[in-house]
Design a protein around this nucleic acid. Structure first.
Lengths: 219, 219
DNA sequence: CGGGCTGCGGATGTCGACAGTCGTCACGCC
DNA sequence: GGCGTGACGACTGTCGACATCCGCAGCCCG
């Protein structure tokens, strides 16, 4: 007789699991930008019905990972360099708000500590996917620590497009996601200088925007 | 024999039309916060299959108009006063970016003109729904004129929750959506003073946040 | 009288099938 | 040879039915 309680059963629906698999597939580059994602084919591959795949695809569509093409057929999204720059401007506004709220909050010190922890995950080793994950996790943590749930939500709705942007302008030897690039943000928060912190975020986003946009448009 | 080309046919899918009807129903107050939206009932009312209603409901869920309750059953969303305040902080960041980009753009003058036009729709007469529409249309126009498509998208994803917030803290004699409240924003843009414009937006959002949050939490 | 078992009703989850539409391509006519 | 036309295949849109799960009322038993 086991003392420990039985492992909690997986209560997720097929739709959720299919969504997860498809998202991973798209984000891992398993399908390239512009590739057609057919319901029948995917349903066959995943061993589920078309309706289930359909709902997962619709979710991916709202996440911005797939875009409806001709006659509603879904294709893997791609972002133009211009859109990438726009995207990072929005991130700048959002994360700038996060920084302001963190500095203004009483729990600034613990927030800085949490960010330093997230920073440690940003190593140079590990595969590319893991580094993307660590990078985005840091920024997500930044939003979370602001304590503004709506901000977190808004940021997460952009996450899909960010990943598309990163993949799209695949800068494989990206020094962009290095620890050194993010440390100044934390430092500025620790200092408590709002203006300086906002400037750091702005520079970070501008550099990232040019980095990822410029990869496919070296203008 | 008519010279004019035949009126283009309605190419919208049942899902889109169902989505539109359901969104209108929820936003018009036809269903109150917390009300259960059953697939079978709605499918019967709309005369479509459950699957079609299902997809529309999922879309509404991602818009934030409905939230999953017990056992995945969908209920009309409601926002706590705290969440309303958070929401308006995010709007402040987003629309602040819009203002900055408009001021920095060469087409500032035409943007001001367009905003003045939108301002004219903000009259005191008309029913409540029309005034909400005019108010949000003004702010959406603000985002559009920034020329940043990602910003527009991010804002629109918040629109559902904004409407919930407005309905939730239904301030029926809202002087919040008056023309006078919005004119200073346009004026500041026309002046070209970024700092002043951002301050105006901040004040506008703060006032709105307290207005709509305070309606249900008069602290 | 209280607690647990047991149907029952209602809700969502999932599926397979049919219908409608579009792109393509070969065919036949001018 | 060029063009309109029809058939064909592929894909998505839509539907109805079955499976599954949960809450609840009623009943039985201790």
């Amino acid at each position: 007789m086991s003392i420990e309680p039985l492992a909690s059963l997986d209560r997720s629906t097929l739709r959720e699991r299919a969504l997860e698999v498809l998202r991973t597939a798209v984000l891992s580059g398993r399908y390239g930008p512009g590739d057609h994602l057919g319901e029948v084919e995917l349903a066959g591959s995943l061993g589920v019905s078309r309706g289930t795949v359909r709902e997962a695809l619709r979710h991916l569509q709202q996440e911005g990972l797939v875009t409806p093409g001709n006659r509603g057929m879904l294709r893997v999204s791609s972002l133009s360099p211009h859109e990438v720059r726009e995207l990072f401007r929005v991130r700048e506004a959002l994360e700038g708000l996060a920084v302001r709220e963190i500095i203004a909050s009483p729990g600034r010190e613990s927030a800085v500590a949490a960010l330093r922890t997230a920073l440690d995950q940003l190593t140079d080793d590990g595969d590319f996917a893991a580094r993307i994950q660590a990078d985005l996790a840091f920024h997500l943590q930044l939003c979370r620590l602001s304590g503004n749930s709506m901000l977190v939500e808004a940021w997460q709705r952009l996450e899909g497009r960010m990943r598309v942007a990163i993949l799209s302008g695949a800068a494989w030897q990206a020094p962009m996601m290095a620890r050194d690039r993010h440390a100044p943000i934390v430092d500025a928060i620790e200092q408590g200088d709002v203006a300086a912190a906002l400037r750091v975020v702005e520079e970070h986003m501008a550099a990232a925007a040019e980095h990822f946009a410029g990869a496919s448009d070296p203008a």
